[in-house]
Design a protein around this nucleic acid. Sequence first.
DNA 1: GTTTCCTTTCCTGCTT
DNA 2: AAAGCAGGAAAGGAAA
Length: 379
Amino acid sequence: MSTSSELSRILNTANVTMYSTEPQPNLQPLHISMVNRAPQLLDISFYGTTAGPWNHVNPQYWTKKQVLEWIEYHVEESKFDASLLNMAYCSMDGSTLCHMNREDFTMAFGTLGERLHQNLEMLKAKHGHHQDDLTDPRDLTETYDLLNDFLLGLPQSPLLHDGQFGGLLDTVVVQPSPPQERRDSDSYNFLTAYKTEIDNGYESLPESLQSSTGSFLNPSSPESNGSDSDPEFLDMRYPVKTKSFEKQERGEQKKRGRGRPPKLSRGSDQFTDSKKSKHTPRGTHLWEFIRDILIHPEQNQGLMKWEDRRDGVFKFLKSEAVAQLWGQKKKNSSMTYEKLSRAMRYYYKRDILERVDGRRLVYKFGKNSSGWKLEELGM
DNA sequence: GTTTCCTTTCCTGCTT
DNA sequence: AAAGCAGGAAAGGAAA
């Protein structure tokens, strides 16, 4: 959990930096040298001046990472000299943070303390009032982690293979490596290397990563061409390496037993039924999952985007990738956009979604949906 | 144990 | 032609 949000941020900013058509302002890295973590993880300049994911979450539930990001944000915004920070105070979680009073803040952060204190009080009030409307922050974290795992498992991610680019179109079978070991040490090396690539620039990337058809890590201008999804993504059926997937792949060659049976068996070993593993937590309906991806635009790697934020109109940019992600959550490796979209269409009847005619891959939240509106999120 | 909800799967026909 | 959309039908897991 701890390194994952760091990772996502880097991946995310990396993605933005690499693929953005806009020149990135303020590219000079600002390092907080006292932190013994990798300096690039604290590279505020890549974060820009946009408030981070912590902004959507009740401070009470912030992870240490989010607290740190929040501090970074204010350091940057107020042009505070980061070297004056006592980093001992920068590794507390949200709960601890929320127990600090104004003097504590001044003691801990000096002249930045007042600003931090005021902002935190504001955020506490803001989220406090909307508590009921909000998704459980822990569910959001879960979605975060899922996104992270998913992204980590991508074979086309540059530098996963010892500095070699694993082009998506070249990859059929990925040598599995335990996701566990990726998470900490490996993920960190990955980040370091990844950041180096960012610094080297987009130009150095192979075609498979630059082309809009090759990679779903590429969020650039989906409107520019007609087809936004990646059919080959699915057709390749490359394994996505998460804990749940590994378990699943080991336990069953191919899951069957759900849904309408096919008219005739088509050569697949569809009768090897296996137990679906235990708990499916509540609050994990499809529309909520989609919503959670959408309300983390920094996190979702261009999988989806808002078409009209206020009206709740959104679009799948990488439809098959989202389906895969949903499949991961449901421990179902054979999920496709086709099937996911059928479930989406059932929502029309229940007014969880509204129909958007004539626009492919575009949906709109309906009156029986919640948790996506700016006001609900306290923004 | 039964019912209900929420998908998942498959399918046919239609539209873009 | 391919991809997406529409919605019926059937099945199933999980929760009520």
